[in-house]
């Protein structure tokens, strides 16, 4: 769903609906993924392609939030799916593929971040031009622009977080996983994840405050 055009009153409802859809989809996907894993293991290329389609949003979405650059995220996603292909014979048919993919994605992103090092955040899109264009064309669109500004600042704030806090926050708040699921994926405890998530939320809040104060 494109949240960019929603004003804040509708946002909570839209996010909740999206998450409900996700959980329903996950159940269906889980069953489908199991049969696809079996078929792909037997050498069915179409089944593997379908597996990638089912999970590409999860893998690429997580990678882009952690690595920031879409190009790096695409490289990471490619590596993750190649690992999936390589490890297909070892994956149990009754095992959940989603947590495994999250874990591999996080590990691959961690390796890539170590290779490429830290980098300056780049804007996702040219918001200044867009803001100018929309505000002159449509009256009352200010709320949308405020929301877009907020998302852009949040996106930048994410890049300032340490890797572990960022990963925990991405899985918990963006991917919508529970604390226990996040802890399982990160090989950590729920208490540690709670601490990391709280620290990350505070840092982001302070970053947003600083940016908004500077604008005013």
């Amino acid at each position: 769903m494109n949240y960019g055009s929603l004003i804040s009153a509708d946002l909570a409802e839209a996010v909740q609906m999206d998450r409900d859809d996700d959980s329903r989809m996950r159940e269906g996907m889980s069953l489908e993924a199991r049969s696809l894993v079996l078929r792909a293991r037997a050498g069915d290329c179409e089944a593997f392609e379908r597996l990638m389609i089912l999970h590409r949003r999860q893998v690429l979405g997580t990678a882009v939030r952690i690595l920031h650059r879409p190009e790096d995220a695409k490289d990471a996603a490619q590596e993750v799916f190649l690992k999936l292909y390589r490890y297909l014979p070892r994956i149990r048919a009754d095992a959940e593929l989603r947590p495994w993919l999250y874990r591999v994605t996080v590990n691959v992103c961690h390796d890539m971040m170590r290779k490429i090092g830290r980098f300056l955040p780049a804007p996702l899109e040219n918001h200044a031009d867009e803001r100018e264009r929309i505000s002159s064309a449509e009256p009352g669109i200010e709320a949308v622009l405020v929301m877009q500004d907020r998302r852009r600042i949040l996106h930048e704030a994410l890049q300032t977080l340490p890797f572990k806090e960022k990963t925990a926050l991405v899985l918990r708040d963006i991917e919508g996983l529970s604390t226990e699921e996040t802890a399982h994926i990160l090989g950590s405890t729920a208490a540690t994840v709670r601490s990391q998530v709280a620290s990350a939320r505070i840092r982001i809040r302070r970053y947003c405050d600083r940016r908004l104060r500077r604008k005013k």
Binding site: L11, V15, M52, V64, A73, R151, I174, G176, R201, I204
Partner: peptide, 28 residues
């Protein structure tokens, strides 16, 4: 904090286009 969290959830998949997803599948 709640507003931040809601806005954060909207970042999911942000900055990616359909072509990006397709290119990953093709390259794999």
């Amino acid at each position: 904090y709640r507003e931040d969290r809601q806005a954060m959830a909207t970042l999911r998949g942000d900055g990616l286009r359909a072509a990006d997803y397709a290119s990953v599948g093709e390259s794999v």
